[in-house]
C-alpha cells in the first residue's frame, strides 16, 4: 500500500471558506497575538521596538566598537552599523517567525481537532507577527543609510522583491518546521540550537569580505546568506558574489514550494492523533 494521501479521493468541502474569510481570520488572529504578547507589560507595544534595537546595540558595541570590525567597500562613518542593520533587518523577523511558528501546530493540536479551520493559517499568523519587526528593521535601515549619505541607489527598486522573497522563504520554512515539530517533537529543540549556529554562518555581524575567498561560494548554500547579501547589495551597494540572485531564487522555490508540499502531504496527521 502506498501512503494514503496518494490514493485519497476525498474532496472535503466541509469547510467552505473563501479567501475573504481567511483574510479576516488571519488579521484578527494576528492582532490578538500582538495584544496577548504585550498584555500586562508596562512598556506594552514599545517592546516591539526595544527588542530589535537592543540586539542592534549589543552587536554594534561588541563587534563594531570593541572588536572594531571594518567593512571594506563601505567608506562612511558607521559603515559597520549599516552593514549590521541590513543583516539584522533580514535576520530578526526570520528568527522571530520561525521561533514562534515551530510550536504553533503542536500548541493548537486540540483546537484543530475541534474547530474546522485550515491549519495553514497558524504558521501564517506566526509569519504575519514578524512583519512588524521586518517593517521596523527595513525602515530603520533606509532612514539611516540615506542619513549617512549612502544612496538612495536605483537598486532599491529590488527591495520589494527581496522582501517578498524573504516572506516566501520564511513561510515555507515555518510550514515545514511546524509540521515536522508536530510529528517529531525533537525538531523544536533542534531549531533552537540550529538558529544560533545559523546566525553565525550568515554574514551579519561580519562582512563577507573578511571571510577567505575560497569559502565564499559555500555561502550560496545558505538561503539567509543569499538574502542578506542581496539586501546589502541593493541598499548599500556592497559587492554581491556572482550567482547569488540565482541561488536565492532557487532557495525560494525550494523552501517555499517544498514547505508547502511537505505540509500538505502530512496534513492528514493533524487532528487525528490516537
Amino acid at each position: 500500500m502506498t501512503r494514503p494521501e496518494s490514493s485519497v479521493t476525498a474532496v472535503s468541502s466541509a469547510a467552505p471558506r473563501n479567501a475573504r474569510q481567511l483574510w479576516v481570520l488571519w488579521r484578527y488572529w494576528m492582532v490578538r497575538e500582538f495584544k496577548t504578547r504585550y498584555a500586562g507589560s508596562v512598556l506594552g507595544f514599545a517592546w516591539a521596538f526595544v527588542q530589535p534595537l537592543a540586539s542592534l546595540a549589543i552587536f554594534y558595541v561588541l563587534f563594531g566598537l570593541v572588536l572594531a570590525v571594518r567593512v571594506p567597500g563601505l567608506d562612511v562613518n558607521n559603515g559597520y552599523l549599516l552593514h549590521l542593520l541590513a543583516g539584522l533587518a533580514v535576520w530578526l523577523p526570520f528568527t522571530d517567525a520561525i521561533g514562534r511558528g515551530v510550536g504553533c501546530l503542536a500548541a493548537y493540536e486540540d483546537f484543530l481537532r475541534k474547530q474546522p479551520m485550515p491549519a495553514e493559517i497558524l504558521p501564517a499568523v506566526s509569519v504575519g507577527g514578524s512583519l512588524l519587526v521586518l517593517g521596523i528593521g527595513y525602515g530603520l535601515l533606509l532612514v539611516l543609510s540615506v542619513g549617512q549619505g549612502v544612496g538612495p541607489y536605483a537598486s532599491l527598486a529590488w527591495l520589494p522583491v527581496l522582501v517578498l522573497a524573504q516572506i516566501a522563504l520564511t513561510y515555507g520554512l515555518t510550514l515545514l518546521l511546524s509540521m515536522a515539530h508536530f510529528l517529531w517533537r525533537d525538531v523544536g529543540s533542534m531549531v533552537a540550537f540550529g538558529l544560533q549556529l545559523w546566525f553565525y554562518l550568515t554574514p551579519i555581524v561580519y562582512p563577507l569580505s573578511q571571510v577567505p575567498e575560497q569559502f565564499h561560494r559555500w555561502f550560496l548554500f545558505n538561503p539567509l546568506a543569499c538574502l542578506v547579501l542581496m539586501v546589502q547589495g541593493a541598499v548599500l551597494h556592497m559587492p554581491v558574489p556572482p550567482g547569488t540572485p540565482v541561488a536565492l531564487a532557487v532557495w525560494v522555490v525550494l523552501l517555499g514550494g517544498g514547505g508547502w508540499w511537505f505540509f500538505r502531504s502530512m496534513k492528514s496527521a493533524l487532528g487525528e492523533a490516537l
Partner: peptide, 17 residues
C-alpha cells in the same frame, strides 16, 4: 461528526454540505 464538520478528512469517500 468530525468528518461532517470538516475538522478531519475522510480517507475515502466524500462529504458535502
Amino acid at each position: 461528526l468530525k468528518i461532517a464538520a470538516g475538522t478531519i478528512r475522510p480517507t475515502r469517500g466524500q462529504v458535502t454540505q
